[in-house]
Amino acid sequence: MHELSVCQAMLAQVEAIAKREQASRVERIVVRIGPLSGVVPELLRQAFTIARAGSVAAEAELDTELQQVRIRCRQCGAECAASSNRMICCECGDFRTQLISGDELLLASVELIRE
């Protein structure tokens, strides 16, 4: 349920960008979310339908681009796809790996209308 807090933080950023760009409204918001960010895209979209009311993004669409969990092994150097709760190296099986992607919680872009 912290998705509503995240959504409100996102809308505050979008409002600031719209003001800076002198836009009258926002048409589309694109966010990138990794499974290890702790945010569920579906819940963020639901929170958005509530939080956007009365904002510059009241009629905007929210696109959530889901990122994949990928790791790099610090022992053998292999890069592998992984899952949130199994992040061991796919080549040598070592657990000392580094996350390359999968924890993103990024506002990627916004599409604005200037009228």
């Binding site: 919680l105 599409e111 604005l112 209308i113």
Partner: peptide
């Protein structure tokens, strides 16, 4: 519409 790239943590 104008697309503005942001890439900022939410």
């Amino acid at each position: 519409s104008v697309a503005v790239e942001v890439l900022q943590n939410l």
